[in-house]
Design a binder for these strands. Structure first.
Lengths: 127, 127
DNA sequence: ATATTTGCAAATTCTTTGCAACTTA
DNA sequence: TAAGTTGCAAAGAATTTGCAAATAT
């Protein structure tokens, strides 16, 4: 696998984002760089990164998929404000670790991953 | 709002399902009934029910949306087997109630809903 | 009779693929 | 040069809408 200029730029966009981005958003942001890759290239690059578990798909209950960088051993849960649209990562230790062990025991279900998103109203939209 | 035969049938399919269904699946199942509604009707009915909070959209990380009946005051988390595709409802008290309160306090984020799905290998696929 | 609901066809939008041209090691 | 990568165009698929005909109250 080759590290081309375009790919570096896509990674750079993802790295700077701090919040999940749609393919369209990645494409638009990367378009401001030199040698901007085309939409298909963004799609293929993100799919590749997803297969390598470097990028994770996040479901924001909108009309397309969103993606964010992750570490192989770490993943994020999210707080999604349905009023202003802001998406925050939940920077707390995931509350489901022990629950997952319990599930494993009671149901014999071996858990490899979970997705957890909270929807509501953020501080700015409450006050 | 009128309770037509077609709508009754759609509700009946959802009621009997016990697991989230895609629009296509609902359409196919309802097609075995008398006076089967067309796909668009299924779409519109399910959208309507979703707006009324009678039906909830579930993200199974597949290529389309899935829907299931819910009670106004209750909702389901899911165990999704990525080997055989089986989807089980999690019939345990949701482990996030107290965590949500904590979030409310520490982040000032007022939570209205969450989606929680576990992915892994079910008992049948482990043995 | 009036308002709602339905079916069909077609538009939209997101996602994905084929292939020839182009790079990069 | 040989393999991987890119762009363009177009295909596929899920979702959504317009509108006239049909139906329920």
């Amino acid at each position: 696998m080759r590290i081309t200029r375009g790919r570096k730029n896509i990674l750079s966009v993802l790295f700077q984002a701090g919040t999940p981005l749609s393919l369209k958003e990645i494409y638009e942001r990367v378009a401001t760089y030199e040698s901007a890759p085309d939409y298909t290239t963004v799609f293929r690059m993100v799919s590749l990164l997803e297969n390598l578990h470097v990028v994770e798909k996040v479901n924001l209950q909108r009309d397309c998929s969103y993606y964010e960088l992750r570490n192989p051993d770490e993943h994020y849960d999210h707080l999604i404000c349905t009023y202003c649209g802001k998406v925050q990562r939940l920077d707390l230790p995931c509350p489901l670790k022990s629950f997952e062990k319990q599930l494993q025991k009671s149901f014999g279900f071996q858990i490899n991953a979970h997705s957890l998103e909270f929807f509501g109203r953020c501080q700015d939209c409450t006050s």
